[in-house]
Design a protein around this nucleic acid. Structure first.
Lengths: 204, 204
DNA sequence: ATGAAATGTTGCACAATCTGAAAGTTTCTC
DNA sequence: GAGAAACTTTCAGATTGTGCAACATTTCAT
């Protein structure tokens, strides 16, 4: 279908789609931040953007998904980013590099992500969804890792372990970043986490 | 169903409650294993146990929760188990010991857990729920870790990192165990994962 | 054993979530 | 500009989940 184009090269239709999607995400985040997850209905979110609630469901399968704001392209991006790392680089280091780039992307949407993470902290039932995003990508990333070390997926368990651990480290860094109100650079926190991983998580 | 009558000290009422809860869990798992998550309604599950759907919601807040079968006591158990490890044992080793015990508990309910994990694999939208259980406990465990190394929670980030990583390793071991159809001992797989963690996840 | 208290189950009403299908509207292509 | 393609909306309906009141059962004190 449509390959990787920049936003400028899109037609009016796709541009409006992205706008609508972003507007729904933003409305969902701000409304839930103010009234709590249970205090906001899909109808509330839709009317805040002047859309029917049915249209909301054309964009997101559920209220929670609008808060996660899972971008469909992110999986492929992550994979390509990981595949771009030279084969002689150790797996954990490759995952660190991939995560650093992801951290910079999050940092670019700083306000949005800080708001999102705050909403997630205040509504713990959402936290699994943040990992859900990861669950999709976990298979893709671990498949790349498996190829990288020349192993059939699902036999050694190492690719799945390394992937799951790396994503856990990334999430932990994000939560710490959010708790510190986005003061330190997220990429630095990610780096620190991976360093501790590489050292075998010794007592500090 | 003939009760195991090993649940001493409990009156008939609480015994029946446990039975009903287990029956609902079992019905939910087997039905979803056969018809898929979307192919089973709460009404189906309830009538399979000869209960009203209203009663189902007295036991579980949602259909998904019946599949997870979250035991309320598990959080406290985990905490106590971790606190029981001598203070001079390094954090990662303490988490390994805690996880081993948990692995043995899972192994004791082998069939139930293999079915559950199979259901979760076949319905990926459920996977976050498996971690949801963890999200609750993640705070509790990381709080214990923080006390163990004498750090204010939320400052160093190490307790949260170590906890998240340990739980990721445990989950990876469980998935591998499930993929291997429960052949190897789960505790051994957990052990192996933690060994790789302690070694800094070197390329295999 | 018996009656009162506590607890569990159920039916009912109701709000909210989410999905198909059909019809209307906008955008794209030629 | 005309037709095709894609997006939005309305509508109907199944399902989820909760509060409440009535009913049934278990427990407990006497």
């Amino acid at each position: 279908m449509t390959s990787v184009e920049s936003v400028d090269e899109l037609g009016r239709r796709d541009r409006k789609k992205l706008e609508t999607r972003a507007a729904l995400e933003h409305a969902a985040l701000t409304l839930v931040a103010e009234h709590g997850l249970a205090g906001v209905t899909v109808e509330d979110i839709a009317t805040a953007v002047d859309l029917s609630s049915r249209t909301f469901f054309n964009y997101f399968p559920s209220k929670e998904d609008a808060l996660v704001g899972a971008s469909p392209a992110s999986v492929a991006e992550l994979r390509e980013r990981l595949e771009a790392v030279p084969a002689e680089v150790p797996v954990l280091e490759a995952l660190r590099l991939m995560s650093r780039v992801e951290a910079e992307h999050v940092q670019q949407r700083r306000e949005q992500w800080l708001l999102r993470l705050k909403v997630f902290e205040q509504n713990p039932s959402l936290l699994p969804r943040l990992v859900a995003n990861g669950t999709e990508t976990e298979r893709a990333v671990s498949a790349v890792v498996a190829r990288r070390i020349g192993v059939e997926p699902g036999t050694s368990g190492y690719p799945e372990l390394a992937t799951a651990v790396a994503m856990a480290a990334f999430r932990a860094a994000m939560m710490r970043w959010s708790a510190a109100d986005g003061r330190p650079a997220l990429a630095d926190l990610v780096d620190e986490a991976f360093s501790q991983l590489a050292a075998g998580l010794p007592n500090p």
